[in-house]
Design a protein around this nucleic acid. Structure first.
Lengths: 133, 133
DNA sequence: TTATAATGATACATTAGTTGTGTCATTTGT
DNA sequence: ACAAATGACACAACTAATGTATCATTATAA
């Protein structure tokens, strides 16, 4: 399963790199060199981070990206929401109707309990807490 | 995200139905009627459950399926393994190499900790524990 | 002031996994 | 013999993830 998709993962790595270079702009060219991610894909990702207020961007020569807020105010859940949508441990198979089996089967209950647990744990993760010192 | 895919979900529902009708064979025709799943898809699923020793199958008229072992010996993890492969909260993006960022970033550590937690919880779930009485 | 290096916007392409279908063979009870 | 069931297995459609390409715009430095 995928708790985290590749774009979220790339985003985290890029952000981590930016955190480690705070105080200056970091360009995509530089990040591609360091992180070994495909350039056009990374561009798209960084653009989305800009649109969503995670990064500030600067055009033109010597341009690039900087964090838009402090690392302890950027949550993993923010990133997951941008690239993967609202966190849900297991989308309901039955969009409209409730599962016809729900009255005999506890699966949904169990899944919701797991979801709550994971959500609690994951909610604490920020860029700051991810940085190794 | 998908902790559980649709085939696993259908499998659970079918098995739950079989549990509720223990002591006799249950045919696919009957299950389709009750569970409102697509018939060819359910056939494939049940066949896999047979091959993997979860169900015993009986051919011919009045044939169908029965549990191959007790409901408290059939684990959700068994089913997930059959339809989704070995449980992993988040496959490593980097098949061969380790993540080049691992020395600066704690993401993998965090994910592994979440995985352990979920695995512990999910390991306790069996067909028996899913049945509402 | 012009070349260059950067991002903005956006459409398109590829791939893999999920979700399903269809068909012919075999078995078994009546 | 017939009908109702599963066995085996190939194929099809759909979707989401992953990745590419292109033209426009902006800003700096020579």
């Amino acid at each position: 399963m995928k708790l985290i998709t590749r774009d979220t993962d790339y985003a985290i790595r890029a952000l981590n790199y930016i955190v480690c270079n705070e105080g200056r702009t970091v360009s995509i060219t530089e990040m591609v060199r360091e992180l070994k991610t495909p350039k056009p894909f990374l561009r798209k990702i960084l653009q989305l981070l800009g649109i969503n207020g995670i990064l500030k961007s600067y055009k033109g020569k010597n341009g690039g990206f900087m964090l838009a807020r402090e690392p302890d105010k950027i949550f993993l859940l923010d990133l997951m929401k941008i690239f993967q949508g609202q966190f849900k441990i297991s989308e309901c198979i039955f969009k409209k109707d409730t599962c016809p089996n729900q009255q005999y089967c506890l699966l949904r209950t169990e899944l919701e309990s797991i979801e709550k647990m994971v959500l609690e744990k994951i909610s604490a993760i920020t860029l700051k807490s991810l940085k190794k010192n």
